[in-house]
Design a protein around this nucleic acid. Structure first.
Lengths: 242, 242
DNA sequence: ATATCAGACCTGTTCAAACCTGTCTAATCT
DNA sequence: AGATTAGACAGGTTTGAACAGGTCTGATAT
């Protein structure tokens, strides 16, 4: 990085950035640990001698980086434990035999309206981003899973359908939109494949597959993602450590 | 493969949630058993250093989950008869349709030697207590699950085979022997029933059942119990909150 | 001995005040 | 023009207090 730019940064630092940087240092240095509550915005106003809007902008950038989450009426909390937690929550799918290389194919990336799902999730809006994918073994091209994600449309996600997924990954896309999993539920059942799904998976209809449904929520309890996965039991097992 | 973290549950906790979570942990861990009376609201006020209204909101959420009931002038009592060790950790099995009453039948309670299992669990001794059970719907007597527990023999458990299970429950037996689950692993797969198991379950051989295997360890990492369950997918789903 | 009653302790309910974040706007500074 | 400020308002969370009424115990009167 150019020296001039460095100096520009250190000298003409916006107050917003100074607030964000100071707090980020506290977090990354461990001075503020995972789960700790930050001072209230008004306390930060006094500490940094800036206006509340400036403090809020600083907190916003931290939230955008996924370092903190903020809840109305309560405050801001550190949600950074050194590692991005992404899919670490919930169960782990393990390729049963060995970890064969898998290839992901995108079947669909579209805006849809699904009033049934909206009702089931108790949402007010019917708009979802649908992301349907299959995963296949790289050597045999055998389809081992079909995954259908539904992400309730919210601000910052409108461009996903036209621009595509970040790094080809839905979780990376959601993360870059500031959506971080805080809690969720998961179900696992057996489903005998429909003719349509069986055709996709290349098996005979009625073949029993493992079906998992996962509902992921953010810190505010808002639904981030609902995923239904159909997993070939020959290649997948669910694994959970607790 | 990644290790899932269950503990990173609620990070940004309101005080209300903190109270509820703490008490729920006490209940689900068996520290507070069925019928036990909780501390009075004022005692909880002092313990958690929050206001009584906050305590009451926490208790309300527990009551909403059916974990406790509260009686005017007396106090709150644990009304959760769920198995403290058994199903509390890891996946929860849910009877899918309604909460049909189930009847547990003991197929076997015996001392066995199983070198294969001992090897798999990396134990030094080969002795296990075998507890095989079926669960049936009370109305139809249809067998909905077959469960085979293997408990490595240790001091304080020798009399179990002759004396039977405490309250007819393996988890109560283990708890009374001072064995408390601290961590574990669980797998879920699909298994097409063998002729023998199909006969027990009263279905045709090859019927796909949900198979869960759970390995429970105590705080020292010693194996407490290894359970293989075969669950009728028509009546059971696995459910996990994280 | 029995009935009664006061007092201690419990939960049920309500409420205002204090504090928190979310949002917006207009004025000010550079 | 963009960053910053100061303020106002809305709405969620927590507090502290008050009062009502249920439950229990023990002292008291009969």
């Amino acid at each position: 990085m150019a020296i001039s730019k460095l100096r520009a940064v250190s000298v003409a630092t916006a107050k917003t950035e100074r607030v964000a940087q100071s707090l980020e240092d506290d977090i990354r240095s461990g001075k503020l640990g995972f789960g700790d509550q930050l001072e209230s915005e008004n306390a930060l106003v006094r500490r940094f001698a800036v206006s509340r809007n400036t403090v809020r902008k600083g907190l916003e950038t931290l939230a955008g980086k996924g370092l903190i989450t903020t809840r109305v009426g309560i405050g801001s909390f550190v949600t950074f434990d050194g590692q991005p937690i992404d899919d670490a929550l919930g169960w782990t799918r393990a390729l049963s035999k060995q970890q064969d290389a898998v290839h992901t194919a995108l079947l669909r990336l579209a805006l849809i309206i699904d009033s049934d799902l909206s009702c089931m999730l108790k949402l007010r809006k019917y708009d979802f981003i649908a992301v349907d994918r299959t995963r296949s073994l790289k050597n045999t091209w055998r389809v081992v899973s079909i995954e259908r994600s539904r992400v309730p449309l919210r601000q910052g996600l409108e461009a996903v359908v036209s621009d595509g997924l970040v790094d080809g990954s839905l979780s990376a896309t959601l993360l870059s939109a500031g959506l971080r999993a805080a809690s969720g539920e998961e179900w696992a059942e057996i489903e005998c494949l429909s003719a349509e799904d069986a055709a996709i998976a290349g098996v005979t209809p009625g073949t029993p597959f493992l079906r998992t449904r996962r509902l992921v929520r953010d810190a505010e309890g808002e639904v981030i993602e609902y995923v239904v996965s159909l997993l070939d039991p020959k290649h997948f097992a669910l694994h959970l450590e607790f």
